[in-house]
């Protein structure tokens, strides 16, 4: 970016970059290194699987994540399509109503959510987490998808219409295949949010058999004391799916984060 680099400039940049990045690397390395200490890597990781309901927690989080991903993706595709391509009075107003959700911190709705979920008798029901979580994620994903689908050429939609396709067929056969990139962003983004969610499971899933992965640190500390290497082994394992997803879909992660922020 700043012209051709001399050897001195190269060394300067390398040193500077390393100094800046090390504070981010240390905590990550520490967690992994400590998880190998104590009784050793093998024993620590084995203990997490055999002595604790770790797999149960993972399964529960997978259920929450799957439910959230499906709900968010379906609602987003339908709404994003209508808000970008279909005619209806008050469309702008509807769009604003959806996007305004971005400004409201969901956690400020603790009281009404708690009271409503209790009234509906949905404690210890995954729906109590999936519903609110989807509502909080949707404003972002609808915004991204609507902006993306606006770029799908209208000619293609008109052609489908002339062929007698209903708007739903057009969405499924024409628009979604052309929007695969944004669909991937929506899926990855909602999975990330669901897997990492701590507050809603804390609030609504009190049954130990239903806890999410984010409850693992608290659960382990209270049940198994402070065997730090084993706790860190559990942390490493609970972050693994996210890190793997990140490495596999790096572009989609980053795009999801930047696109919504930079465009519009």
């Amino acid at each position: 970016m700043f012209g051709r680099a001399t050897i001195r400039a190269r060394i300067l940049y390398q040193v500077l970059a390393t100094v800046l990045v090390l504070p981010f690397a240390f905590p990550l390395l520490w967690v992994v290194l400590v998880s190998f200490q104590g009784q050793g890597a093998r024993a620590n990781y084995a203990a997490v699987f055999t002595q604790t309901p770790f797999l149960q927690f993972i399964t529960n989080s997978l259920i929450i994540s799957a439910g959230t991903v499906v709900t968010v993706t379906l609602c987003t595709l339908l709404a994003g399509f209508a808000l970008s391509k279909l005619e209806m009075p008050g469309k702008q107003l509807l769009f604003m109503a959806v996007v305004a959700g971005l400004m409201l911190p969901g956690i400020a709705l603790t009281v009404p959510m708690f009271l409503i979920i209790r009234e509906l008798g949905l404690f210890n029901n995954y729906v109590a987490v999936i519903g609110p979580l989807s509502a909080i994620i949707l404003p972002m994903t609808v915004l991204l998808t609507r902006n993306y689908m606006r770029n799908v050429p209208d000619e293609l939609l008109d052609a489908a219409k002339i062929d007698g396709a209903t708007s739903f067929t057009t969405l499924v056969r024409v628009v979604v295949p052309l929007s695969r990139a944004i669909v991937a962003v929506v899926i990855v983004w909602s999975f990330l949010n669901a897997w990492n969610e701590f507050f809603l499971p804390l609030l609504f899933l009190t049954d130990p058999g239903m806890q999410a992965v984010t409850q693992i640190p608290t659960y382990f500390t209270s049940t198994y004391g402070s065997d730090v290497p084993k706790i860190f082994a559990a942390l490493t394992l609970m972050c693994l799916p996210i890190v793997v997803t990140y490495v596999a879909f790096q572009r989609h992660f980053e795009r999801g984060l930047t696109a919504g922020a930079i465009k519009d």
Binding site: T71, L74, C75, T76, L78, A79, F81, A82, L83, L86, E87, M88, K91, L94, A97, V98, G101, L104, G106, L109, M113, G131, P132, S134, A135, I136, L138, P139, V142, S167
Partner: peptide, 16 residues
């Protein structure tokens, strides 16, 4: 067209 928006809107309006 409104039908398409209803699921998302129900969640956002209904909860937020």
């Amino acid at each position: 067209a409104y039908l398409y928006v209803i699921p998302a809107l129900m969640l956002i309006v209904g909860i937020i």
